[in-house]
Design a protein around this nucleic acid. Structure first.
Length: 432
RNA sequence: GGAGAGGUGGCUGAGUGGUCGAAAGCGACGGUUUGCUAAACCGUUGUACGUGUCACAGCGUACCGGGGGUUCGAAUCCCCCCCUCUCCGCCA
């Protein structure tokens, strides 16, 4: 959520931002509505407070008044005021709800250096690392490898849970665990606190992070007869962890390495053909989440750091990748800036393509405002909203996919990347 | 899932209808004293919004787990929900 004061004071800039963000004309119109609503709201709030002030005055006077006649006069006035405040207060609340509702439609502001554009075509490649391997034998994609090596079972997943689910078996299970271990160990060295989070969260937390728990657009599964949803990412639980808290400035930055399962309905993604592990309903992910002081300098620096760590993780795995600076229209609601890493996937497309494996976002105070996460800046009075950032360390499924396809050998086995061997206990994946 | 107890300011803890944004203690901060440290003493010590100011101050409103209700008036009474603790049941 944006700061309502900022929206009112910079309505034109906010509108332009909405256009750049590719959000629909009705949302742009919301900005004007918010400006109008806000001045009404202020006027009515003043009225309500004035009545309340008089109510308090009367109530106190009533308590002190000994004379029965005067006392009943005061009681009568109190009753009158009570009736009076009801209607005005209800109007105030209506306005507040409407304002909040419209405010919550607005996307975050955008980093001035982020490319401006409406679709993902405007995303900019800002770095390429490594060279895709040239194979001197016909390659398989990870689905074929998974089947041949008996390490990924889509048929079993389909039978038990439906399309988009799978079993990881044998060395596939070990490889998944090894990648988790590798990422967590790496992050602990970087000063992150390792955390295993709940896989379900309250809908209010989902909303605070910027997810829509309900409706046709929803990306998450909700649990019937509860206000819980299966999380789409540990960003939800790690961001919610400090909801409604005031942190001490010395605690910041606060860095978590969260391990969770992630569940996604992938509603609306049906048309986008993607086989195998690339788009699934459940996967495991090691997620970085950071809280910083509420300045663009602090979160901007942290954002670069998260990207650096993501890159080093993939460099460590020896997987070629490119880094994308995501354009305004493709940023999603909460992000102020976002970088994606796309790793080389030999089995994708005709002769291999880069495919998204991580994503890191600087959400500035957008999530913190809705989740009410603040801190006390040193040497200042009052509190400020923190900035929140998230980044994928390793999303299993996709990282697993990339390892299998890049490390396959002519004999159908798969070499285990050096860094994973201590966790795998072997250097080659073979059919058991 | 069942039975009971409880949720008050940074912490401990008082407060069962009015003078309570809330006693007291601790902690923290500022000051006095002191060769230094300690102790002692004095003072300050929540947040948000509004109003006001160059900026303070001041003033107003709200907040005693969350929401609703009773009342002229609620931390205090009633209802619902959430959470914590104890015991029982069940269970990895």
């Amino acid at each position: 959520m944006l700061d309502p004061k900022y929206v009112v004071a910079h309505a034109e800039a906010v509108k332009q931002n909405c256009v750049n963000r590719n959000v629909g004309a009705d949302v742009v119109a919301d900005v004007d509505a918010i400006v109008a609503l806000d001045s009404d709201r202020k006027a009515i709030q003043t009225q309500v407070e004035e009545i309340r002030r008089r109510q308090n005055e009367v109530a106190q006077a009533t308590g002190k008044e000994k004379d029965p006649g005067k006392r009943s006069e005061l009681v009568a006035e109190g009753k009158r005021l009570k009736e009076e405040v009801v209607a005005v207060d209800e109007r105030l609340r209506t306005l507040e709800v409407e304002m909040k509702q419209r405010l919550s439609q607005l996307p975050n502001l955008t980093h001035p250096d982020a490319p401006t554009g409406q679709t993902e075509d405007a995303n900019k490649v800002i770095k390429t690392w490594g060279t895709p391997r040239v194979f001197d034998f016909p390659t398989k994609d990870h689905v074929e490898l998974g089947k041949a090596l008996d390490i990924i079972d889509f048929e079993g997943g389909g039978k038990v849970s439906g399309q988009g689910f799978y079993f990881l078996k044998n060395d596939g299970a070990l490889l998944d665990l090894a990648l988790q271990q590798y990422a967590i160990h790496r992050l602990v060295k970087e000063g992150f606190r390792p955390v295993i989070t709940p896989d379900l969260a309250r809908n209010s937390i989902l909303e605070g992070i910027g997810f829509q728990p309900r409706g046709p657009e929803t990306q998450v599964y909700s649990v019937e007869n509860t206000d819980l949803s299966l999380i789409g990412t540990a960003e939800i639980t790690l961001g919610g962890l400090h909801a409604d808290e005031v942190l001490e400035a010395e605690q910041l930055p606060l860095k978590y390495a969260g391990l969770s399962h992630c569940f996604r309905t992938e509603a609306g993604a049906g048309g986008r053909a993607s086989k195998g592990l690339y788009r699934v309903h459940q996967f495991t992910k090691v997620e970085m989440f950071a809280y910083t002081e509420g300045t663009l300098e602090a979160s901007g620096a942290m954002h670069q750091d998260l990207l650096r760590i993501e890159e080093e993780i993939f460099q460590g795995l020896g997987l070629p990748y490119q880094v994308l600076d995501i354009c305004s229209g493709d940023l999603g609601g909460p992000a102020y800036r976002k970088f994606d890493i796309e790793a080389w996937m030999p089995g994708r497309g005709e002769a291999g393509e880069y495919g998204e494996v991580t994503s890191t976002s600087d959400c500035t105070d957008f999530q913190a405002r809705r989740l009410n996460i603040r801190y006390k800046p040193a040497g200042q009075k009052g509190t400020k909203f923190v900035h929140t950032l998230n980044g994928t360390a390793v999303a299993l499924s996709r990282a697993l996919l990339a390892v299998l396809e890049n490390y396959q050998e002519a004999d159908g086995t798969v070499l285990v990347p050096e860094v994973l061997r201590p966790f795998m206990g072997k250097d080659r994946i073979t059919r058991i």
